[in-house]
Design a protein around this nucleic acid. Structure first.
Length: 906
RNA sequence: GGGCGGUUAGCUCAGUUGGUAGAGCGCCUGCUUUACACGCAGGAUGUCGGGGGUUCGAGUCCCUCACCGCCCACCA
């Protein structure tokens, strides 16, 4: 006997262990012979991570599809694994070191990296266990890690090949530099943050005239949000068509505090509308200025070290051509070695002292921050490795254009194209220790030898120099996303031509959030096409972001994070999963309310109790039971409804409409099976033994099986548990539910549907009227069916017991006319009369009927207006017009009967 | 500045070819009815953001305005 409720927290882990032991999720488990493969690669979570709501949604959706396909007998592989997450992981371990007042430099590279591996061994399994807790049916035996041996070999191979093809190259240009993490980062890792800053207007004195703050003809005003960079200014730019400054172009100004003479150049970059219309140019510290500098052949003066401290002493580029003026000496003494923000203050202060500060305006602007380090990034001139993304993007764009890879919902393709068509070189080198070290070795003269091993590089060097030389390896590691980009094929064994690679590549569908379309999806497309020659996935399903109840992005700093593990603890993984699926409408953010999870926990309890009820009534599965041989109307009806539900759920899942699928299953289980089938079958189940009872028991058990299958992708734990428990009676289960075949819609019985639908309507109507009339539940009323045809009267006979019980009716009979003083319910198949004499105030019934008549009147008037419109009759499709007529006639007939009933009561 | 999405019941959200709206939660009224109070029965609540247009007919298509959110670009 089942307990009263399903104890999710206790039972779910046990089920998970059973799946594991049975190897139920191994690639190909339960597949039909000759089945097509179905592959999903998991978006690898960071090893440092723990399960958040985004993971929960993402993996629930994947698991629903994977379980569906496995049940359909497809050869399923859900490839799991984790990402080494370069910066994030390195930061975790560095933080631990910091607690002991240590720095990674103290350990040295080798020992530090060893420490990270240690940490990974200890804590890296957290996220995987949490995914298992969620019920993710990955093939855990194939778990991979982006830095394991095989994947690292793939990374080497890819790097070397792209290098040899000229698609990876080294370049010196401005990069986004994170002065806290001391590494370059890619454009995508930069987040713009609105900052309330200032716009400082500086006067730069013109050459050849005596500077006089009160005489604007002696200087030019530039506006800046970054005063400190003025130390590296090498020009002032004005717009070529800006008449205000036309006369000044070609002249020079003396850079205050520094004394450098810099030109005023005409460049269209300068925007006359912004600031003063003249802009200071710092080629070494601003992306736009860098470009301007190249156009005008300006020097690039880097004034920062890697931590964005100002470096002036010994800074050759800075000092070149400067005279040893007093103000310069002061500037160097005051500012050298100080932080950029301290220098900002000092520069402003000294500019003011010198009369060079014209005004300060408040100014809100976006400041780029490193997404990991959280500090403003610095455009910084360094040597880095780049991927020629524009080249690799071409086929990746074509694939989507030509529909070989399809985004769902399609709107995301626009985003994809937008980015891919304007893609910039991808900076892939990072000045970190944790990651794939770049396979480049440098000779004494700095020449790079890129090869898969040091030996190979040494050989190349020998060939180049004509002798053995000492080589030093590039210190940098690759952007984490470089290895992630290979994930769909590297996890399957590439570059080896493994059987898995052949079998499971390309993958069937990728399920991910829109936030990593650029980071990941686009790059997998590029790498997959380049190295495998085919798109890495057929469909890309983009799901929403999970937000809090108010729609805010969940974040630790806001404190609005809902931890999925808490929800699992409180309501069960099944409830959480079902909630996420039910809310996963395409193209919308999900605002998660805990009450919703509670609601679906109730649903699982409902299911549990329905099975419990069946168990109590001896609904045991019958070997070889053939649903199509059922003869009882009620059973034929529920089988029809099952067929419909199976069709709806399947169709919705095939279209990635997870919410529709969940909704259809929910409505069927609760609204149809529990509310009506179980209720209506009670008389049979508690009645005398016989064929009807046997058939009903077998049918109930059969329908429950179908329900368990249908719900399994959404609620794997409770369904697997019930599958096992219901397997204890009757014929034993051949397999776990997870490996059972997905149902296909069976035959339907329209006649049974019509009959039971009438019954449901009759009961509902009687209940409704009773409630409206304020008739106490304990009061039993007789009911009389008036004006019904023989078939309907037959239905009444058949279902009299059900009606009596469910509508609280003392006796049900048919008659020619309604008894006096009856409430009357007019239906399409006759009028149901409830004699009310002595039970209820007849005036109330008159009022009810009058209201009903009024409503019908309104409906009829509305339709008639429509039908009187010649345009409607002429232009609307015939069937729509006909439908309206039928509706009108039906209403009119009912109205007549309602009026008649009213008349009798008068 | 460019682009995308949203605005539907008190709250959170559905609404797939255009035929005047649904769910969960909440609320109200009843109920120890052969599983389930995490339940049962019944009920109330919407000028589908504003305006205009197309159409016989618009929550659904087009235009426009307002507000909200996101993405990309931008440290003058």
């Amino acid at each position: 006997m089942l307990d009263k409720t399903f104890e999710a927290a206790a039972i779910e882990p046990r089920i998970a262990a059973a799946w594991d032991e049975a190897g139920a999720f191994r690639a190909g488990a339960g597949a039909e012979p000759g089945a097509d493969p179905f592959t999903i690669v998991i978006p690898p979570p960071n090893v440092t991570g723990s399960l958040h709501m985004g993971h929960a949604l993402n993996n629930t959706l994947q698991d629903i599809l994977v379980r569906l396909m496995r049940m359909r007998g497809r050869d399923v592989l859900w490839q799991p694994g984790t990402d080494h997450a370069g910066i994030a992981t390195q930061m975790v371990v560095e933080r631990q070191l910091a607690e002991r007042q240590q720095h990674r430099r103290d350990l040295g590279r080798e020992r530090f990296v060893a420490k990270v591996w240690e940490w990974k061994a200890e804590s890296g399994g957290t996220i995987v266990n949490q995914l298992k807790r969620l019920g993710a049916s990955c093939d855990w035996s194939r778990e991979r890690f982006t830095m394991d041996e095989g994947l690292s070999r793939a990374v080497l191979k890819v790097f070397v090949r792209l290098y040899r093809e000229g698609l990876i190259y080294k370049d010196k240009r401005l990069v986004n530099w994170d002065p806290k993490l001391l590494t370059a980062i890619s454009d995508l890792e930069v987040v713009q943050e609105e900052v309330k800053g200032h716009l400082w207007h500086f006067r730069y004195p013109l050459e050849g005239v005596a500077f006089d703050p009160s005489d604007p003809s002696t200087y030019i005003v530039v506006a800046t949000t970054r005063p400190e960079t003025m130390l590296g200014d090498t020009a002032v730019a004005v717009h070529p068509e800006d008449e205000r400054y036309a006369a000044l172009v070609g002249r020079r100004v003396r850079l205050p505090l520094v004394g450098r003479m810099i030109p005023i150049v005409a460049d269209a970059y300068s925007d006359p509308e912004k600031g003063s219309g003249a802009v200071k140019i710092t080629p070494a510290h601003d992306f736009n200025d860098f470009e301007v500098g190249k156009r005008h052949n300006l020097p690039q003066i880097n004034i920062f070290d890697v931590e964005a401290h100002v470096v002036l002493k010994g800074n050759e580029a800075f000092l070149e051509g400067l005279e040893a003026a007093e103000d310069l000496a002061e500037t160097v003494a005051l500012m050298h070695g100080r932080d950029r923000f301290a220098v900002r203050k000092l520069v402003v202060q000294r500019m003011e002292e010198g009369g060079f500060l014209e005004k300060i305006e408040p100014h809100v602007h976006a400041v780029p921050h490193g997404d990991r380090g959280g500090v403003p990034i610095e455009p910084y001139l360094t040597d880095q490795w780049y991927v020629n993304a524009a080249e690799l993007a071409k086929p990746a764009i074509t694939s989507v254009r030509e529909g070989r890879t399809v985004f769902v919902p399609k709107t995301w393709e626009k985003t994809y194209f937008e980015w891919m068509e304007n893609i910039q070189p991808w900076c892939i080198s990072r000045q970190l220790w944790w990651g794939h070290q770049i396979p480049a070795w440098y000779g004494p003269d700095g020449k790079a030898f890129v090869a898969e091993s040091e030996e190979e590089a040494a050989a190349e060097a020998r060939a180049h120099y004509g002798e053995s030389v000492g080589l030093s390896r590039d210190e940098d590691v690759l952007d984490t996303w470089f290895s992630s980009a290979l994930w769909p094929f590297s996890t399957l064994g590439w570059p080896e031509e493994t059987a898995e690679l052949k079998r499971y590549y390309p993958t069937s569908v990728l399920i991910t959030g829109f936030d990593i379309i650029f980071f990941w999806v686009a790059r997998m497309m590029m790498m997959g096409l380049h190295f495998m020659g085919t798109e890495p996935f057929r469909d890309v399903y983009i799901h929403a972001l999970v937000r809090d109840e108010k729609g805010a992005k969940m974040s630790k700093t806001k404190g609005n994070v809902i931890d999925p593990l808490d929800l699992i603890e409180d309501y069960g993984a099944d409830a959480l999963r079902f909630t996420l699926a039910a809310m996963a409408a395409q193209g919308r953010d999900i605002k998660l309310a805990t009450s919703r999870v509670a609601g679906y926990r109730n649903f699982s309890t409902k299911l549990w109790n329905a099975v419990r009820f069946a168990e109590m009534n001896g609904c045991v599965r019958v070997a070889g039971f053939d649903p199509s041989s059922a003869t009882e109307t009620l059973n034929r009806w529920i089988l029809t409804e099952v067929a419909r539900a199976v069709g709806e759920v399947t169709e919705a899942l095939d279209a990635y409409r997870f919410n529709d699928a969940a909704g259809a299953a929910y409505r069927f289980v609760w609204g149809t099976f529990c509310d009506w089938y179980l209720e209506l079958s009670k008389p049979v189940l508690t009645g005398e033994d016989g064929p009807a009872k046997d058939e009903t028991r077998a049918t109930a058990a059969h329908v429950i099986d179908e329900i368990l299958k249908l719900l399994h992708p959404f609620m794997p734990f409770i369904t697997e548990e019930l599958w096992a428990r219901t397997g204890e009676a009757g014929p034993s289960r051949e397999t776990l539910l997870a490996l059972t075949r997905w149902p296909t819609p069976g035959a339907t019985a329209p006649d049974a549907a019509a009959e039971i639908n009438w019954l449901v309507e009759a009961i509902s109507e009687i209940r409704s009227v009773r409630a409206e009339m304020g008739i106490a539940p304990a009061t039993q009323l007789p009911m009389v069916l008036v004006g019904a045809d023989a078939a309907t009267r037959g239905w009444l006979d058949t279902h009299a017991a059900a009606i009596q019980r469910l509508a609280r009716v003392s006796e049900a009979s048919a008659a020619e006319a309604a008894p006096p003083q009856s409430a009357q319910i007019v239906t399409a198949r006759g009028t149901i009369a409830l004699p009310l004499a002595g039970v209820v105030d007849l005036a109330a019934e008159r009022a009810r009927l009058a209201k009903e008549a009024e409503k019908l009147d309104g409906e009829i008037a509305r339709i008639e207006k429509k039908l009187d419109n010649p345009q409607f009759v002429a232009r609307a499709p015939e069937e729509v017009v006909e439908e309206e007529r039928t509706k009108r006639d039906g209403y009119a007939e009912r109205l007549a009967k309602v009026r008649e009933a009213l008349g009798r009561l008068a």
